[in-house]
Design a protein around this nucleic acid. Structure first.
Lengths: 176, 176
DNA sequence: GCCTCCATGTAACACGTTACATGATTCG
DNA sequence: CGAATCATGTAACGTGTTACATGGAGGC
């Protein structure tokens, strides 16, 4: 149940319409929980139904018209509850690891190129994160909110670093 | 489309019934692509329909009776194709990162305990992997198949290490 | 006979993905 | 006016999750 809570978070940061949310997702929260506009509209509908958000009155409600939402107190409370709620870390679920297992049975033909391609993609992504870090979190200490945002970004950086290290290890071993 | 291919891999390693597959998933491939028995039965049905696997003739087909499957040549070919197929690495999608972003807005109440709990879980999981590594991959070099299995396990180890490192960083920073 | 376990399966739902439809606005 | 773009939405499908149903085999 992360998507509705990701949306609540984004709406608390700034009330928005569905399409705006989609755009903002693409360059911030979406790095860690992506969503298409269809998913977002669907969830906005449910959240409104549930009384956690509401459409701002001044925005016209007809089709094709912007409809801006804001979070209601019940929504903020729900989000605060969710943040502290125990939840098991989800299992690893990655196609590349499965593919390597499969290659152990049917052979590694064509796999090395694919691994190299992934390695390049992860390096690019890591460079993007590093750029964001340099731009948004330059100096020593900052406000509480910024520190948390920085830690999330650090998570992304460490995760991409993991992929790069592992893929490098695999490629080195397969070359032997 | 990883589940059918994970099943093909497991069946190539050893023809099995649905429940056997479920059990084997729980302690090998399932570390990287978990599946419940319902998913597995559903996929076995589709794979049989598609002519990629077949039920072994000697196993009785009535309800409540074991039904053992083996991979047909078409299935092996499909798996070999899939291994080399280009596929984008899936986006990061992790609730804990989202929760940290949410905490930046609604506060970190109760979050630290949850982070500590996750840290402990990842340490346990890492210890399990380390144990498997010690048991199954002790010596110098081994057969091609074993090397690949070892690399997959190394991936799991590195990934758990990533979580431990990042959670440690977050907890240190939140304590400040 | 009854209970438990093994084994296969059905049903319903939640979530994510893809393709497409429709209305409003802007700009040439 | 026509085309492109902004914005919201419908529909259909694939995959994953949860709860439950059915049948066979072995032990008390």
């Amino acid at each position: 149940m992360s998507l509705p809570h990701a949306i609540l978070t984004a709406l608390l940061e700034k009330p928005s319409s569905g399409l705006e949310l989609t755009r903002r997702f693409d360059k911030s929260i979406g790095f860690f929980w992506s969503a298409t506009h269809q998913q977002i509209y669907r969830e906005l509908g449910k959240l409104e139904q549930a009384g956690l958000i509401r459409a701002l009155p001044q925005t016209t409600p007809t089709r094709g018209q912007r409809k801006e939402y804001e979070v209601l107190p019940a929504g903020r409370a729900e989000l605060a509850t969710w943040v502290a709620e125990p939840a098991e870390p989800k299992e690893i679920r990655d196609a590349l690891l499965v593919r390597l297992r499969a290659a152990a049975v049917v052979g590694t033909d064509g796999l090395v190129d694919e691994l190299r391609r992934h390695l390049a993609l992860h390096r690019t992504r890591l460079a993007e994160y590093a750029e964001i870090e340099r731009r948004d979190f330059p100096a020593e200490r900052s406000a509480e909110e910024n520190r948390l945002h920085h830690l999330v970004l650090r998570g992304g950086i460490r995760l991409e670093t993991f992929w790069i290290d592992w893929l490098t290890e695999v490629l080195a071993e397969l070359d032997t």
